[in-house]
Amino acid sequence: MRWRPHHPVHLILGLCVWSIWFVVLYGGLSVACQLTPPEPQQGPFNWLNVLLWLSTLVVVGLLLWAARVLWRAAPRAEQPLGRHIGVTSAGLYLVSAFSTLAVAMPVLFLPPCI
């Protein structure tokens, strides 16, 4: 079974990525704070926040790319069903990208470990 653009797995794939990223973000933060916390004086600009933010940007980019691929592929589906699923999935990838970006916003403002 290949995951073609109108396969229903795309309905959940984007948010699955979001969930995994969320767990990694929270887990990574906790572990890093336990092992080598950056100095609180540095505020939000330290290696940990930068790393978290970069990972966020990568995930967001990936999700946006997926949304675009699906959006373009949707009209090419043979049946209305495929189109429908394709468009909805594209929307859900977009939602995931937005959620990723939104949840990671505080990385820009807050010091990590206090």
Binding site: P40, Q41, M105, P106, L110, P111, I114
Partner: peptide
Amino acid sequence: LLVFGIPIGYRMLPLP
């Protein structure tokens, strides 16, 4: 909400 909320939260941090 965040524009108002984040600074309030910031002030409550036990920063040195």
